[in-house]
Design a protein around this nucleic acid. Structure first.
Lengths: 232, 232
DNA sequence: CGATTGACTAGTACGTCGTACGATTCTATC
DNA sequence: GATAGAATCGTACGACGTACTAGTCAATCG
């Protein structure tokens, strides 16, 4: 009755007589490792979304048994945490060495941060958890150092960093959650039109439609930086 | 073999001879309704967290069968959406009638928004989804109207609103995700201390510790409002 | 050389979840 | 009473995370 579970990956050996099998199943796959698991998880998340990542599917994609994953990883939460951080690597601004313009450096890193998260939309769903892996810490350190060099006094440093962090995360989440399908968008607008009496201003300015997300992000960021920049 | 499932709620009638049962089981509970379901869901989320909300537990708390819920609600996602919006009701600023100070009005509403979400920490985990129920729309409409009255031209209105929205959501999520237990906090700091070489600035400013979240929120908000306010 | 050990892989099984389905009960109307 | 829709709910199914346990393999040691 029970057939091969999903049919796609024919890697797992079919059950045949022992005598017919080669002495050693050639394993083309490299052995499992934390890195391979995380990489496969990111792939799976990218292609199937956050609901699509299950330990079974992950194992299938890796050509391994499900429980083998648990040797390298404590639980599924770990996989999420590792995948999130791994999607947030940062290589620094394009120029060589130190840029003299701290503001450009900050903007570049933060825009890259946001871009990375939008490239992996599932990452926005994972923000709730305390996610401070090496890549995130590295970005914060860079931010910290750049602002400090730019003249922000230590007393204001944390406020500045957290304000920027808050803003970037909020912009990313909002952007991700408003990325509706065209159908949803149409339905939403219809609903809004019907409720014109309750939300006249929203209807007038078409807040929920056609927004220039990137532009909004840049402008808000500029306002913040204006406010945070060392007073002259 | 199968015993009574969880033992707690002894409301469900035990299987006894038909002849011994009263003609009509008295039902002390009021009938189900979308409103009751949502209210119970919020209670459950508040007390057990986001993982604690299951349809079975929800039904148990309502003294109903699990599948009865599905008459009032399409699926579990609906319950989340409804619960989120219901936690975000806003009654307006304390003063009577119109306040003359648009800025106070905006700050009050946004601080209340954040406070509501922090009072229901699970709400931060739900931000990923497009969550525009009546209460959120009402808040956006209020924001929109207030800024418009304050003199923000229509062309800048959406940018302003989204910047503020982004900021509030980000601040809330960051705050919620950094609300570590004391143990986690200690572990985190130890880890950071060990990695002093990699993250010297973070270690120096103790970024991940003892932060004045409310203060940071207010200051960043002020910066944004300064930037967004109609130029003079 | 065989025995031992520890790193790693994996099958089976358990408890829990969301919910499809169909039967049942309730309430209102004729 | 008969009928019909509204509302309730028990059973069952497939999928999930993962505990437990047995297995494989390579390196090490006698």
């Amino acid at each position: 009755m029970a057939s091969q579970p999903s049919g796609a990956g024919s890697k797992r050996p079919k059950r045949t007589s022992v005598w017919l099998q080669p002495v050693k199943e050639q394993r083309s796959e490299p052995p499992l490792s934390r890195e391979r698991i995380v990489a496969a998880a990111v792939e799976l998340l990218d292609s199937e979304g956050i609901e699509g990542l299950t330990m079974r599917r992950l194992a299938e994609r890796l050509g391994s048994g499900v429980m083998s994953l648990y040797w390298h990883v404590d639980n599924k939460e770990d996989v999420f945490d590792l995948a999130l951080d791994s999607a947030l690597e940062y290589r620094g601004p394009p120029q060589v060495a130190e840029s003299r313009d701290w503001r450009n450096e900050v903007v570049h890193m933060l825009e890259d941060w946001r871009a990375n998260m939008l490239r992996h939309p599932w990452s926005a769903s994972l923000l709730e958890r305390p996610a401070f892996g090496p890549n995130v810490l590295g970005r914060l350190e860079l931010l910290s150092r750049t602002l400090s060099r730019a003249g922000v006094p230590d007393a204001d440093l944390n406020v500045s960093i957290w304000s920027l962090y808050n803003y970037v995360m909020g912009a990313t989440i909002a952007r991700a959650s408003l990325d509706l399908s065209d159908d949803d968008r149409a339905v939403g607008q219809q609903r809004l039109t019907r409720l014109r009496d309750l939300y006249p201003t929203l209807e007038r300015t078409r807040l929920l439609l056609d927004n220039d997300w990137d532009g909004v992000f840049r402008k808000g960021l500029d306002f913040l930086l204006d406010g945070l920049a060392p007073r002259r």
